[in-house]
Design a protein around this nucleic acid. Structure first.
Length: 288
DNA sequence: CTGCAGGGGTAAA
DNA sequence: TTTACCCCTGCA
């Protein structure tokens, strides 16, 4: 554990707000000066951007350059992906213009599973609150700049936590789901390491769906936002349903739009980049 | 002030 | 295909 710093100049597709507010993560918070501080793995990092320079600094377990490159997906050519998506239609072009600085983080699989189970039928401020309380109570403390931060608890950390204790943290009806999923993962009924090595996304998806509290939407978010990094999935929530209906389907009642129909259009239009297309459309529709 | 819908869905009926 | 679910917020 040591304080480190790393700077990058002239990086494309990297805007703090786009990355941290596009709905993929819950543990990054904006600071007074516009920078963001967050916890991931055993790291506490602050990210600031001034002009065309991005500065990462904080407590980092391994080498900060490698840590940052992996977590922020820096080795992927977003420019190339975006220029491909832009050609699809005017809507896609507009949404990419709006969220041009998005990068899809490589978040820890276990943390992503638990976080998105918590996200079900829930709103962001409350999701963030629950995750903070969970980390504070069961995670590991890391102090930096006179502030205490807490790592996301591991499956082992949660081994003996009861359903009632989850309820007291404010998890609501998600308490039992968190408990059951933690046990399933500890018992290796679902093997997370094996998943990362399995190139068959639909097979991995099925395994995720067997976890308590993981339905189609949560499974797709996990596939896209975790270090599984499967860009061909297309998570459909109320906002995506809304934007897809507005743009391509034009049904009078958006809540009645068939999921299969949305999936078909997404597959045809965006193919193996559907996940990223979804993120631009989602962010654009929700924020703009 | 009270009542109620709705929020980045899931599971069970 | 429909409905309840915990908790919080916004609004009638």
């Amino acid at each position: 554990m040591r304080e480190q710093e790393y700077k990058i100049s002239n990086i494309d597709s990297f805007e703090l707000k786009d990355i941290f507010e596009c709905g993929q993560c819950f543990r990054w918070n904006e600071q007074q000066d516009g920078s963001y501080t967050g916890v991931f793995g055993d790291n506490v990092l602050n990210v600031a951007k001034t002009g065309n320079e991005v500065i990462f600094k904080g407590i980092c377990k391994e080498d900060i350059k490698e840590t940052v490159e992996k977590y922020f997906d820096l080795n992927r050519d977003y420019q190339k992906i975006k220029s491909k998506l832009e050609k699809i239609d005017e809507n896609m072009k507009k949404s990419i213009e709006y969220g041009q600085g998005i990068r899809i983080l490589n978040q820890d699989l276990w943390e992503t599973i638990i976080s998105f189970i918590i996200s079900a039928n829930n709103n962001i401020p409350r999701i963030k609150g629950i995750i903070e309380r969970l980390s504070k109570k069961y995670g590991k403390e890391i102090e930096w700049n006179d502030t205490k931060y807490y790592t996301f608890p591991t499956a082992k950390d949660l081994k003996d936590v009861t359903v009632q204790e989850y309820r007291e943290l404010g998890l609501g009806f998600r308490d039992i789901r968190l408990y059951e999923t933690t046990q399933m993962i500890l018992d290796k009924k679902v093997d997370l390491e094996e998943m990362k090595n399995n190139p068959n996304t639909m097979e991995v998806r099925e395994q995720l769906l067997s976890l308590s509290g993981v339905g189609p939407k949560v499974a797709d978010c996990i596939l896209l936002f975790s270090d599984l990094k499967r860009f061909e999935v297309f998570p459909i929530d109320v906002w995506v349903r809304r934007v897809m209906n507005d743009l391509y389907i034009h049904n009078e009642d958006e809540t009645k739009v068939n999921k299969k129909q949305i999936e078909k259009i997404a597959q045809e239009k965006f193919g193996d980049l559907a996940g990223l297309a979804q993120q631009y459309l989602f962010y654009w529709r929700r924020e703009a």
